[in-house]
């Protein structure tokens, strides 16, 4: 499965990907997402699932079913938009709370015997070089901590520039 996490409005998204295969799951902003409250319930109350049961509570399970994660986000200060970041904050049930040391740093262990590739598209007409540098560091850190590999990190000025071959 391909998992697409994006912050585009419905019209923009349908223009970008008009013929979406059934093998894709799309995580869009329906205006109802709640923010992570730092309770760690996804590790110690309902392991593997977020305790907040809105439309975004099963991100860990969806990541575990995905071969590729495609993120399309407006670039905010060298990172994701608040909605996309919210989805990622709500995704930590994908990993295990226990720690292990990798490359002499502490990271969380895998919950699933699984990995996925990540492609990130940052869009915005005024993304600075410093922001691009930060965004690269952020995506690399995410890939280490979510135990995934990076397929690509792209910066474009507008959504229209996003390659039609995104899938």
């Amino acid at each position: 499965m391909k998992l697409i996490i994006h912050d585009l409005d419905k019209i923009e998204f349908e223009r970008l990907l008009p013929d979406l295969p059934d093998s894709c799951r799309v995580v869009s902003n329906d205006g109802t997402i709640k923010n992570c409250i730092g309770c760690f319930g996804c590790w110690v109350k309902t392991p593997g699932a977020c305790v907040i049961r809105d439309h975004y509570g099963d991100m860990g399970e969806w990541l575990a079913k995905s071969d590729e994660v495609i993120i399309i986000s407006k670039c905010y200060y060298g990172g994701y938009s608040p909605f996309v970041k919210n989805v990622l904050d709500r995704s930590i049930s994908y990993i295990h709370p226990y720690f292990e040391t990798r490359n002499n740093e502490m990271h969380h262990k895998k919950r699933y015997n699984h990995t996925f590739e990540t492609s990130v598209w940052f869009y915005g007409d005024d993304i600075t070089d410093d922001e691009k540098a930060t965004a690269n560091k952020l995506v690399i850190a995410n890939s280490i901590n979510m135990i995934s590999s990076i397929k690509g990190i792209q910066f474009v000025k507008s959504v229209e520039e996003i390659d039609g071959g995104i899938l």
Partner: peptide, 29 residues
């Protein structure tokens, strides 16, 4: 020491929530 302490803390919390310590690694897929 930090790792051991943190992991003891997770086990303590999961037991307090009425689950078994093995549930901490529960897989839904």
């Amino acid at each position: 020491g930090y790792k051991i302490g943190a992991e003891m803390g997770w086990r303590y919390q999961i037991k307090n929530n009425g689950l078994n310590k093995k549930d901490i690694g529960r897989r839904l897929v």
